[in-house]
């Protein structure tokens, strides 16, 4: 089974100060903070590795590919994935700002999926920089594949099937499906990607990142992508203030009782 995991490298926006949130040339400059895995994609990558490990004993090994769209600054992340034994690390070359253009990304990914004949696509539901939450669904649509959202677990099954666990509004759904499928990973319990050893970095990291020029995988979606490309014009801060009440009188035990009765009991009932 060929599994493609798509990921995005994102700046750590928590490192920005208020004064950094300014629109200059339709952009917020995030170039001076560290980059990291997009958290949902990080879960997706780890989930893929676990799936592959489990499948080895059951139905033989999987062929894992990791792909991202961007410039060569993300190559170190792709190298890490090679060291974690993804067989292929692919970068779709792009210099432009695609944060708010999931259509473009989905078109390129669809092109790559078709070209490389993948069976399963795993990716995070959204990334904090664009917050579009559209790419997995758009990709599924372009491929004409089914998609499962809010995935929190994937296991191999016999006959080339997968057991996929996903969160629903009113519970957890487990279904056995036959690929092809696009799996959109939500709030998975495992959120960190394992870390490769220096030795593995040396041994497997030597493999080079495959760089793909978009025109090699896609032909005619430019108009669609351009139509859908929004521009960043204005930012406004979200009011994060909360009301607070100080429970003042009584012993710690009295205070805890007041806290429970007035504020927690109702919430617990709802749960």
């Amino acid at each position: 089974m060929k599994v493609l995991t798509c990921f995005k490298v994102v700046p750590d926006l928590t490192l920005l100060t208020d004064e950094d949130w300014q629109v200059v040339n339709n952009q917020v400059d995030v170039g001076f903070v560290k980059n990291d895995w997009n958290p949902f994609d990080e879960s997706a990558l780890e989930m893929t590795l676990k799936l592959s490990e489990l499948s080895e004993s059951l139905s033989g090994s999987m062929e894992l590919t990791a792909v991202s769209v961007g410039n060569k600054k993300i190559d170190s992340f792709l190298k890490t994935l090679l060291a974690l034994k993804f067989q292929h690390a692919v970068r779709i070359e792009a210099e432009q700002d695609l944060r708010f253009n999931p259509h473009q990304i989905a078109a390129w990914l669809a092109g790559y999926v078709k070209k490389s004949h993948q069976d399963v696509v795993v990716m995070g539901v959204q990334s904090g920089v664009g917050d579009n939450a559209q790419t997995p669904l758009l990709l599924a649509e372009k491929l004409g594949w089914p998609s499962i959202t809010q995935v929190i677990g994937i296991k191999p099954e016999k006959n080339g099937c997968l057991r996929v666990t996903s969160q629903m509004d009113d519970g957890v759904l487990e279904q056995v499906i036959k690929p092809p499928v696009v799996l959109s990973v939500g709030n998975a319990p495992n959120s960190f990607l394992r870390v490769p050893t220096l030795k593995d970095k040396l041994n497997y990291g030597k493999k080079s990142v495959e760089v793909i020029i978009p025109t090699d995988i896609i032909v005619d979606n430019t108009t669609e992508a351009e139509i859908h490309a929004p521009k960043l014009i204005k930012l406004s801060a979200i009011e994060n203030q909360r009301d607070s009440v100080k429970i003042q009188d009584g012993t710690p035990s009295d205070k805890a009782t007041i806290l429970f009765n007035r504020y927690l009991k109702q919430r617990l009932k709802k749960l």
Binding site: T14, L15, L16, T17, D20, F32, V33, K34
Partner: peptide
Amino acid sequence: VEPKLIQRWFEN
């Protein structure tokens, strides 16, 4: 390198 790179790192 750009001083702001150092400043943001130091602040965090």
